[in-house]
Each structure stands twice: as structure tokens, then as C-alpha cells.
């Protein structure tokens, strides 16, 4: 077997796959954040909690109601998305006219409530979720668990579908128009407040979908989204929230960077994304794909 810079290929490709999977989650979550921010002008701090709710919904469905993974993949985002719509209708809607920081604080408070309640009910130790596609393939240079391969492909499909939905469909065109100039779009007879509500539901559903996909890989636990959302914030700062494609590329790219760091200098693997953020701020403050605004 060949070796690369003294690193056995199993370790290298294993970490690269892990990086790609992490990147898939960064991409899906930062995409949702960007879509929500574009429309609502709110940085959704609850995103990590909603991701956790997605995983929990799938786990509860499986253990309490025997609903299989594939059904949960559809049901869970719908349920959590609906929960998001209620949040938007009851609370978020009332603070759009205020400074951005209030949306940030409100959603931070909501995340504390949701995560605290889940932790109180189910504790903070994780519960395992059996892999829906067990087994794997030996590729010669590494072993690929089938489910992990599926997650990468599914995340790519989800990201591209979101991109297509926003950039190439009529609904997406309304969305982009309403982001640019809501008053004018309303004058054309389009119900912008409903569009905003739907967008939030969509973004939240996306987070929940990521949560369901993560359930069989990670332990399902009340705090699974806490650190993740902070990393995703850094991803969003690096990519800039202006471009959908930018979020996807940045998410996957940073996952790979993190994976490579784990191979070559493990102690820095937790911090490398933040270091990249510092560098990007030095060189291109608006973010890799952002416009200065």
C-alpha cells in the first residue's frame, strides 16, 4: 500500500470522508441560516436546537411509534418546520422592525428554552439510532459505510435542490424579489408576510432534515446542536450570506479542511475553522462569496 507523507491511506481517506460528512451538515445548516437571514433579517440562533429537534423527532418516532427512518425523513422536517412557523407567527414577526440584535437574542433565548426542556426530559447523554442502511463496501484504500456515503449524496441533492428552488423557480423569484424590496413586491399583490413565514418554516425544516440525517451517525442528544451552531456561524462569516452556492461550497470545503487538519495536526482540528475565519476577515472581510453591504 502507498503512503502519503507518512500518513496511512486508511486514516487519510477515513478522515476525509468524516470531513465531507461534517461539511455536508455545515452546508445544509448554513444554507438554512442564509435563507432565513435573507428574508427575515434574523440570525436564527435556534437553528442548532431545531436540528436537534429533527433528530429527536425521528428517534421518538422510531422508538415510540415504530415509524421507520425513511418516513421520519419526511415527517420530522414537516413537524419541526410547522413548529418554526408557529414561532414565527407568535414571536419573530413582532420584532422585524427592531435592530438585528434583538432577533439574535430572542432566538438565543428560545434555543436555551428548547435545549433545556429536552435535557430535562431526556437527559444529556445520547441515545443511539440504528443505521437504516447497515453494511458497507471495501473500496481497497478504505472502508465506506453505506449510510455515510448516502448522507453525503443526500446532502448534496438537498443543497442543490434548495439552490434550484431559490434561483430557478417562480417561488424562488418571488422570494428573492421580496428580499430586495418587500414593499414593491407587496404592491404586485404578493402576500409577503406569508412568504416570510414560509421561508422560516423552510429554513427550520432544512435544519430538522439535517438533524434526521445526523441521527444514525451521531448520538441523539439534547445538546447535539449547541456547539454545531457556533461552528456554522463561523462558516457563515467565512462564506458570506449573499450567495446560496457560496454557502454550499464553503460548508463542504470547511468540512474537508477540518478533516485534513485531523490527519496532519489533530490538536488544531477543533479550532481550524475559526482560524480560517480570522484569515478571511483579514484578507476579504465581506466573506469569500459575500458582497460588502
Amino acid at each position: 500500500m502507498f503512503e502519503l507523507l507518512g500518513i496511512p491511506p486508511q486514516a487519510l481517506f477515513g478522515q476525509l470522508l468524516l470531513g465531507l460528512i461534517n461539511g455536508a451538515f455545515y452546508a445544509m445548516l448554513s444554507l438554512g441560516l442564509a435563507v432565513i437571514f435573507g428574508m427575515l433579517n434574523v440570525i436564527n440562533f435556534t437553528h442548532g436546537a431545531q436540528y436537534m429537534m429533527g433528530a429527536f423527532a425521528a428517534w421518538l418516532m422510531l422508538t415510540q411509534l415504530d415509524i421507520p427512518f425513511w418516513a421520519a425523513l419526511v415527517l420530522s422536517p414537516l413537524i419541526v418546520g410547522l413548529f418554526g412557523i408557529v414561532l414565527e407567527k407568535v414571536m419573530l414577526k413582532r420584532i422585524y422592525h427592531l435592530d438585528h440584535l434583538y432577533g439574535f437574542l430572542l432566538t438565543f433565548g428560545l434555543a436555551l428554552i428548547i435545549e433545556g426542556l429536552f435535557q430535562w426530559k431526556w437527559g444529556s447523554s445520547g441515545a443511539p439510532y440504528p443505521s437504516p442502511i447497515p453494511g458497507g463496501t471495501n473500496l481497497g484504500f478504505m472502508f465506506l459505510p453505506t449510510y455515510r456515503g448516502f448522507v453525503v449524496v443526500a446532502a448534496l441533492v438537498i443543497c442543490l435542490a434548495t439552490w434550484y428552488g431559490i434561483e430557478r423557480t417562480k417561488f424562488g423569484a418571488y422570494l428573492r424579489a421580496a428580499t430586495e424590496n418587500p414593499t414593491l413586491v407587496r404592491a404586485f399583490g404578493i402576500n409577503v408576510p406569508r412568504l416570510i413565514t414560509l421561508t422560516y418554516g423552510l429554513g427550520v425544516g432544512l435544519a430538522a432534515l439535517a438533524g434526521v440525517l445526523a441521527a444514525p451517525i451521531q448520538q441523539v442528544s439534547a445538546l447535539m446542536g449547541v456547539n454545531l451552531v457556533l461552528v456554522v456561524f463561523a462558516v457563515v462569516v467565512i462564506g458570506g450570506m449573499g450567495s446560496i452556492m457560496g454557502s454550499i461550497v464553503t460548508g463542504f470545503g470547511l468540512g474537508l479542511v477540518e478533516g485534513l487538519t485531523k490527519v496532519f495536526y489533530p490538536p488544531a482540528s477543533n479550532t481550524v475553522i475559526f482560524v480560517v475565519m480570522a484569515l478571511v476577515l483579514l484578507i476579504k472581510p465581506a466573506g469569500l462569496f459575500g458582497q460588502t453591504k
Partner: peptide, 21 residues
């Protein structure tokens, strides 16, 4: 109260942002 401290803190955040800015 354990985890409930966080929940209460969260509730205070929400109440203040919604009503007592």
C-alpha cells in the same frame, strides 16, 4: 433546579426582547 436554570434564563430573554426592551 439544574437544567431549569437555562430554561428560565431563556424565558427571561424572550420576555425582555418581546416586552421590556
Amino acid at each position: 433546579a439544574g437544567e431549569f436554570v437555562l430554561v428560565i434564563q431563556g424565558v427571561i430573554f424572550v420576555v425582555i426582547v418581546m416586552a421590556f426592551r
